[in-house]
């Protein structure tokens, strides 16, 4: 489904990614973890070219991502992304946020899009907020709208960039629940997170990044209980599992 080969990325003199190879199969939920600065968010952003790689090849659903504009927009339309700070469009209502891309990019029929948007909002538990502007929502609600907005494009894969890091602790659960539901429905997901419980319970694979390379790639049980990698053990000691 998604294949990244030998991904290198640097910002000036700073090498952030030093040759990452990774493959994610359809329906798989992959959690990327690592200390801050390990390159996990950068890697995620490289997957839909929000960051341009210096080297390496990314293939999504058999199509190679390149920097040509048409190709890029088409691929991005199939790859949903959820951001740490939600990035909802503040000048549009919740419903308009969800409808925007299907209307503008896919040029779908408005009545049809509206129906679909309502269904998706219901799925994330926010149907009663359809006509509200984002600034009237809590952080957890904003993030659920952001997920709904991404889902409206019927993406083949969803990328989550620390989706709960900006939330108050009591709001984390509702977002993780929506993500878990999606995982159970078979959505392919790549999630950068510090939520170890989510990694343990929902992920099919846990990938640990350190200094821009993958140092461990295993199932959650092996990762959390039987890892022999020194850096992984150090990391697990630091975080609360």
């Amino acid at each position: 489904m998604i294949k990244a080969e030998n991904i290198h990325k640097s910002f000036g003199d700073l090498n952030v990614l030093n040759g990452i190879d990774m493959e994610v199969r359809r329906g798989e939920v992959v959690v990327l973890i690592g200390v801050s600065g390990s390159g996990k968010s950068t890697f995620l952003r490289c997957l839909n070219f929000l960051e341009l790689t210096n080297e390496g090849v990314i293939t999504i659903d058999g199509k190679q991502v390149n920097q040509k504009k048409d190709n890029l927009a088409k691929i991005r339309a199939e790859v949903g992304m959820v951001f740490q700070h939600f990035n909802l469009f503040p000048h549009k209502t919740v419903l308009e946020n969800v409808m925007e891309a299907p209307l503008m990019v896919k040029k779908m029929d408005k009545v049809q899009v509206k129906k679909m948007a309502h269904e998706i909002l219901q799925k994330v538990g926010l149907s009663e907020k359809a006509e509200v502007y984002p600034n009237k929502l809590s952080g957890g609600q904003k993030q659920r709208v952001a997920i709904a907005r991404a889902l409206a494009m019927q993406p083949k894969v969803l990328l989550f960039d620390e989706p709960t890091s900006a939330l108050d602790p009591e709001l984390v659960g509702e977002v993780l629940q929506v993500m878990q539901n999606l995982a159970e429905e078979g959505m392919t997901m790549i999630v950068v997170t510090h939520e170890m419980k989510f990694a343990k319970n929902v992920a099919d694979r846990v990938i640990m990044l350190d200094e821009g390379v993958i140092i461990e790639d295993s199932d959650p049980d092996t990762f959390f209980n039987r890892s022999t990698n020194e850096r992984t053990l150090q990391f697990l000691e630091m975080v609360d599992v």
Binding site: L50, K69, F83, E100, R149
Partner: peptide
């Protein structure tokens, strides 16, 4: 982030 969210949805520049 507004621009990024829009691009990520497949909207062009």
């Amino acid at each position: 982030g507004q621009r990024e969210a829009s691009l990520a949805l497949g909207m062009n520049s």
